[in-house]
Simulated assay, not measured.
Amino acid sequence: MSPSLIGPAVGSGSSSPRCRPGATPYPFAVDVERAIADCRRLGTDMLRIGMAPMSELRTEDTVVDYAKRTEKAPQSLAGEDITLCYDNHHVEFAKINGTFILDILAEEAQSMGREIDVHWVQRGGLDPVRTLQKYADRTAMVHLKDYRIGALSEDGVEAYDANPWNETFMAHFLGVVQFAELGEGNLDFASIVPTAMDAGAKYLLVEQDRLYGRTVFEAPATSHRNLVALGFKDLF
């Protein structure tokens, strides 16, 4: 069955007061019955961890420890036919002792699937198509989100004119990367979408973190229009 571009998925919550000290802070890891009930009520068979706490990603030991604790959740949910996935950002493509954090998580939490976000893959310095192919065996969801280089602000131009390559200018210079409507940035969705489907993704989720003055209605309308123009109308 072909994946849907928009489908139900439940994200992890914030810290739960029921978590024991040292436990992963996502409620479903310590309250599986609640997680199952939430999924049944919402009609979804998928959960995701939106991002690990930054304190868990500091060293190889903390990453491994976090992954081992987190692994208990997908194992508990598997009997209920509920899949748990991890949603990457760019920080998981930092290397510790030559290995991506995302790969350490995958190795130590082998029951956990992936929710690949192509914008953050690009921001992490990797190619989205090759990354989807690499992680095809466990990718259940894909975030479709474009990557755009915006214009340097007037403040940035003035900072450069005042003193080229100063700290203020560099902050503006490095901050031109933007989230974008699909088809309005630099990513090749004509290749990304078929690759995501070949990778076995059940849902392709259109997402945009910031709108830069556009409305929540205008942005998805633009993404929809551009995806249709690329030939993906039947996926909606």
Rank of each mutant, 00 (worst) to 15 (best):
A199S: 11
L132G: 04
Y86N: 04
I192A: 01
I82K: 04
L47E: 00
V176A: 10
Y26S: 08
L235E: 04
L77M: 12
H143R: 06
R148W: 07
Q122D: 07
V121L: 02
P164V: 06
E33L: 09
T83M: 15
G150A: 15
V157I: 14
V142A: 02
N226D: 05
N186P: 04
D31Y: 07
A67F: 04
I6T: 11
A73C: 08
I116T: 01
P128V: 00
L205T: 00
V118N: 00
R214W: 13
L42V: 11
C19M: 12
D87Q: 14
D87F: 09
A196Y: 08
E184V: 10
L211H: 12
A171H: 09
I49M: 03
L227A: 05
A73S: 11
C39F: 07
L211S: 07
E92I: 04
E184Y: 13
L5Y: 10
Y212H: 12
I82C: 06
T215C: 10
R138T: 09
S223K: 06
E107Q: 14
H172E: 09
V30R: 05
A190C: 00
F173N: 13
E80A: 15
I96W: 09
L152Q: 07
Y212T: 00
R20L: 15
A159V: 01
C39K: 05
G125E: 01
D155E: 13
V121S: 00
E107V: 02
L57N: 01
R225H: 11
S191P: 03
D81I: 00
A140K: 13
Y212F: 14
I36E: 13
D81Q: 12
L144M: 06
Y86Q: 03
L174Y: 12
I104G: 00
G98Q: 02
A37T: 12
H143I: 06
V193D: 01
E33P: 01
L235Q: 06
C39Q: 06
E115N: 12
G150Y: 09
A94V: 04
L205G: 00
R130C: 11
T24D: 00
A37M: 13
D117I: 02
H224T: 15
M197V: 13
G43P: 05
V64A: 09
Y135G: 06
Q75I: 14
G213Q: 06
Q178V: 03
F189S: 04
L77Q: 07
M54P: 00
S111K: 08
D198Y: 10
D31H: 10
A151T: 12
Y26I: 14
C39I: 05
E56M: 15
T59V: 06
S15V: 11
F189T: 02
A221Q: 14
A109K: 05
G175Q: 06
Y135E: 05
G231S: 09
G150M: 11
S16A: 14
N226S: 04
H119E: 02
V177S: 14
A67Q: 02
D155P: 02
E80V: 02
E56T: 12
E92W: 01
P25I: 02
P3L: 10
L152E: 07
R34T: 11
G7F: 11
C19N: 13
